[in-house]
Structure formats: structure tokens, C-alpha cells
Design a protein around this nucleic acid. Structure first.
Lengths: 340, 340
DNA sequence: CTGAAAGCGCTTACAG
DNA sequence: CTGAAAGCGCTTACAG
């Protein structure tokens, strides 16, 4: 194994002291531009890369911690993709922590806190943000939340516009002439669903309509939700039966599709459907889903950029909160092309 | 910020020297069981976690590097999931490197090599395994390949059974009575496709059939592939036209589905379809795909376990190669339930 | 089995 | 602007 060079070797080769080499490495102290240039060249020639761990022990860590819940959701990869692209271009590396939602992130935060392992943290919270994280932030560790659930907390964050997304979705159905639009959501305790419901109500009211509680469906199991909604809907008297349905997640939409098929209900002819997420599968269901695209890749990128800037400026910027717009992707399930 | 404890503090609290504390930390030297127990208890009481970076500078790194190509493929998350579960239970953390396939992994490997940043490496190769990696391994850095492309190289690896998977897929179609089975694959230079083709041929020959070159389709763009195959197939004279099609990736199957629909070809009635991968969307297309499930989560887990054991035994185990079985998931696209 | 001491590769006041 | 020196928190021969 080729002997590893140290700053001492570089110092010797460049004819300076290792203090100077270290200074050009951290470039936070004044070094004569000419010597700096020379040192840099020597490092280049010898493919010198400083030992991360040695730097980290006194200086700052070269790692950015990324804490995500379930990796098995395809949109999580989009998020990781966006964020890793942004970090790739920086001198930092990504340390990935997956968090068993059941266990919570206390363990992980303790470890990070105790070991000063990371310079900053990018976290995708899946439960109310724990006070440990806030403490950590107040103590000087830069943290940026990628908040897809919309937990409100006084920390820098990137989120997406749930109200606006739902508004656009329901407006689209209204424009197609639908008046009775059912609403299906996941666990009611999650703020993102509350916000999407707000958007739904707002759209209806703007059109002079009132939400009908018989058309409201909520439940924990997304997969199952949509199916359950259809089971209820078919029992409704024709006069109150919806002609359209807004599912606040694509998994629910899949349930709606499955169950509709079983009941001989044709989507979109008999029932128009607009969904939420734009998971990869949304383009491949039959009919393909008209759905609100959440900008996960962008959210990842923006969050990483925010963290990187927090890392660069020693003065702690006050809590930034960026909310990214969503986009309605029109495919086949809403029957846009049909006359309703 | 609560003052960080060091082994010196623990030593003082436990009434021993920091050498002893360090020894129980690394537990690779003889320490009196009673004192070890006592020290451990003191650490426990004070929530002591050693500084990773400090350990890493002399001892071994607490990081396992994971190098993956595109994160945007949903099965990649399954892989990460399996591997992170296994590593979670260990004292190691995951450092994630995403590799722009265009750039290749030379840069990354150089960095890892130069900085001794990781104790071991889990890599998902997307291009022929570079010699740097082999050198790294020979120089003592444990490496395990998660080889979904089936690059053959003398390194510990976990892969899946391409020949067997294809064999099962085509056998299933043969059992349903199909005699003319088309074959669609991705880039021919990838060994995994060559192996799947072997399985395809093997199944046909076992049934006394010969592969027909007019039913062979290969191309780089998976998405497009399936569509292109259908375009060709419809031009074929009825006598040679296939009654079934085996696509070696789910993306191609999506293309087949789309294009079939356009041509009024009903899957599975007019054309039975068996695919490969079992991506998440496979269950949600219409018809849902009968497809060969690749055991990505298991592959991740097994690879991590192998690496962990490599990390524990100082004597380098000779190149282990595990090949995991695939499983044919029967859904609707093959028309199992129909009489052909 | 255990301490005192030297050292890992880097950073950072402290002088100049 | 730059060196010599002390130090980060841990590990590991070296004695005992």
C-alpha cells in the first residue's frame, strides 16, 4: 500500500512548515498568495489528500449527516439524489443514518451530539421534531429540515406547498365540471394532510361549494384507504355519490383504482381521480395518474445548499424556511380530455 | 453545549488509567473482566460515546463506505435498506458515495484510499470493476461487491441468479402452452443480460425449441425497448408472430404495455408477458406484471454481513461469492388463469 | 493485567 | 506572513 503522505511530507517538499501547509488547507488564515499557490501545486503533484479524521479531531468534521426514515419509498431516493448532487460538489461527504421510525431518532442524535461526528445535519423528520435536535441547533450545529410532513418548528427548513398543491388538484376537477368531489387522506394527525385538506376546502368554497362530510375519508393505511373509500362510495345514494375523487397520496390512488375495477367503476369515465406525490409508479398505472408532483429532488438540493451556506458563514443566519411549489401533472385518471 | 467527555474523564471516574479505558473500548487486549465491567458501567452511566474521528486516526475507521450509482432507481433503495439494517446493528456508520456513472468511481476510490476514511467498502458496480478497487482490496481494505450487473471479478460478492431467473420466467410461459416467445433485453454488453438470455435459450431448448432471431430484441434504452419490440412484432407475419414476450426488465415491460395498448393488442389475452426486476411499480401496472423478483434487500443485507465478518477476522477470508435465488412473482400479465 | 509515555495527522494560539 | 510548540482524543508498544 503506497505510503500515505502527510502534511509534514508536503511541508518538506514545499520547503515550508507544516503550519503553513495546514493553513492553506483550511484557508482561514493569512498565507502569502505565492507560497499558498506553491504549496497547492506540490499537493496536486503528489495527489495529496488530507486525512479527514485527523482534521476532524480538532477542526471541523468533513461529514454532513443525513437522517432519513424509510428508504423504501421511491421518492426518498429522489430526495437523496438531489441532496447528494449538491454535496458532491462540496468538500463534504454524506454520512447516511436510517432511522427506524419505531425507535425514533434519539439514539442517533445522541451519538452525533456526543461524537461531534458531523459538521451539519440534513434531516427528514417523520415524527414531531425532537427537542434534542433543536438543542443541537441552538448549540451551534447547523441543521436543515427537509420537511415533507410539514411539522412546524423554528429551524431552517425546506418544505413544499401542500395547500397550493391540493388547491390546484381540486381546481382542476372543478374546471372539468365536477361538483361532488370526495377526499381521501392518510393519518389525520400529520400536518401535511391537514394542509391538503385546507386546500381542498378552499377550492370548493371558491366555487361556492361546501365540503360534505360523507365524502371525507381518512385512515392510517394508505394502501387500504383508497379501497375503503370506494367501498363506502358505492353504498352512497346516487344523489350524493361523488363524480370525482382527490386522493392525497398515490398509494391511496392505487387502492381506488383496484377497488373501482372490482366494482366495474371506470376511471375516469365514471369517476375522475386526481392524486398526490407523483411517485414513479404514477405514470404506469392504468389509467396513468393525474397527480400533484412534489419537488423532492429540488427539495433535497435546496436543503443541501442551505446547509452548505450555513456551514460557510459563521454568523448563524436566522431560521430560513423555503417552501417550494408543487406542480399538477395531468395524465389520464382525471379524464381531462373527456367531456364530463 | 454539555461538555464532551473523553476517555480521560471516564478513566478518572472509574479510577483507572486511560490506557485501560481505551482497551475496553477496543476490547482487543487483555483486561481484567471485573475492571472492564466496571469501566463499561461508568461509560454507560455517563452516556459516554468515544469520538469516532479520534479513534479513526490511529485505530480503524468506524465508517463503512457504500458506493452506489444512480439512487433514482427504486430497487436501489431496497438494497440500501437491507444493508443499512445490517449495519445499524454494528458499531459502524454508513458513508454514502453516489457515483455519477459518467465520471466513474476513480475519484472516489482515490479519495478513500488516500484518506483511509473507511474501514471497508460495499460497492454496487455499474461499470467493469476498476483495478483500483482490486488493488485496494489486495492491500487489505475489505470490499464486498453487490453485483447486480454480474461483472465477474475475483472479489467477495453477492449477486443474484440471472440464468435461473430467466429460466423460471420462460418455463412458466412454456407451461402455459406458448411456443413462440419473444425476448427483449437492455444493453447487450452487460453480463446480466447475457445470462438472462442463456436462461431463455436453455428453457426453450429443454422444451425442444430453438431461439428465433426474429424474436430477439436488444437495445440501450429500456424505456424505449419494449415499445420498439412491439412495433417490430406487429409487422411480423402471423406464423412467426410471438404469443408471449419475456422482457428482462420492468421498464421494458412498461414499454410493451404502452405500445400494445396503442396497437389494440390485449395483454395477456393476445400476448402474454413475463418481466424481470419486480420494481415497485410492477404490482401497479395494468395488467400487473408477472415478473422475476430480484432479492435486492437480501443482497444488501448479505453483503453487509459479509463485510462485517471480513472486518472482524483479521485473516482475509478468500473471495466469497454468494449467489441469491430469484423468485417468479405471478400476477396478471402472463395470463396464468386464462386458457391459452 | 495495567500505567506512563509516545505517537497518529492535523490545527491553532503564541511569538516573532 | 510564518515557525515552533502544544494540543485534539484516542491507541499501542514498552515496561512492569
Amino acid at each position: 500500500m503506497t505510503k500515505k503522505l502527510t502534511i509534514y511530507d508536503i511541508a518538506r517538499l514545499a520547503g515550508v512548515s507544516k503550519s503553513t501547509v495546514s493553513r492553506v488547507l483550511t484557508n482561514n488564515a493569512s498565507v502569502d498568495p505565492a507560497t499558498a499557490q506553491h504549496v497547492r501545486q506540490v499537493m496536486e503533484e503528489h495527489d495529496f489528500v488530507p486525512n479527514f479524521h485527523a482534521s476532524a479531531i480538532k477542526g471541523k468534521s468533513p461529514f454532513i449527516g443525513v437522517i432519513v426514515p424509510v428508504l423504501s419509498w421511491d421518492l426518498m431516493s429522489d430526495l437523496l439524489l438531489g441532496l447528494s448532487r449538491a454535496i458532491e460538489a462540496s468538500p463534504f461527504e454524506i454520512v447516511l443514518f436510517t432511522c427506524n421510525p419505531a425507535k425514533g431518532y434519539r439514539d442517533i442524535l445522541d451519538r452525533i451530539l456526543a461524537t461531534r461526528m458531523t459538521a451539519g445535519l440534513l434531516v427528514v423528520p417523520f415524527a414531531p421534531v425532537p427537542t434534542e435536535l433543536i438543542t443541537l441547533y441552538q448549540d451551534g450545529m447547523p441543521v436543515v429540515l427537509i420537511d415533507i410532513v410539514s411539522w412546524r418548528v423554528d429551524l431552517p427548513s425546506v418544505s413544499d406547498d401542500n395547500v397550493g398543491g391540493a388547491l390546484a388538484a381540486v381546481n382542476h376537477l372543478l374546471q372539468l365540471g365536477h361538483r361532488r368531489i370526495a377526499y381521501v387522506q392518510g393519518p389525520a394527525e400529520l400536518p401535511c394532510y391537514q394542509e391538503r385538506y385546507q386546500g381542498y376546502c378552499m377550492a370548493l368554497r371558491n366555487a361556492g361549494l361546501e365540503p360534505d362530510s360523507r365524502l371525507f375519508f381518512s385512515g392510517h393505511d394508505l394502501d387500504f384507504n383508497g379501497q375503503a373509500a370506494i367501498e363506502e362510495i358505492v353504498k352512497l345514494p346516487p344523489s350524493v355519490r361523488p363524480t370525482a375523487i382527490f386522493t392525497t397520496s398515490d398509494m391511496s390512488a392505487c387502492g381506488v383504482l383496484t377497488s373501482s375495477e372490482e366494482h366495474g367503476i371506470h376511471v375516469p369515465k365514471d369517476l375522475a381521480l386526481v392524486s398526490y406525490n407523483d411517485m414513479h409508479l404514477a405514470a404506469h398505472t392504468r389509467p396513468a395518474l393525474t397527480t400533484v408532483r412534489q419537488p423532492f429532488q429540488d427539495m433535497g438540493r435546496r436543503a443541501a445548499e442551505m446547509l452548505l451556506s450555513l456551514l460557510n458563514t459563521s454568523d448563524s443566519i436566522h431560521s430560513l424556511n423555503i417552501e417550494l411549489p408543487t406542480q399538477l401533472i395531468i395524465r389520464d385518471s382525471c379524464g381531462s380530455s373527456l367531456t364530463v
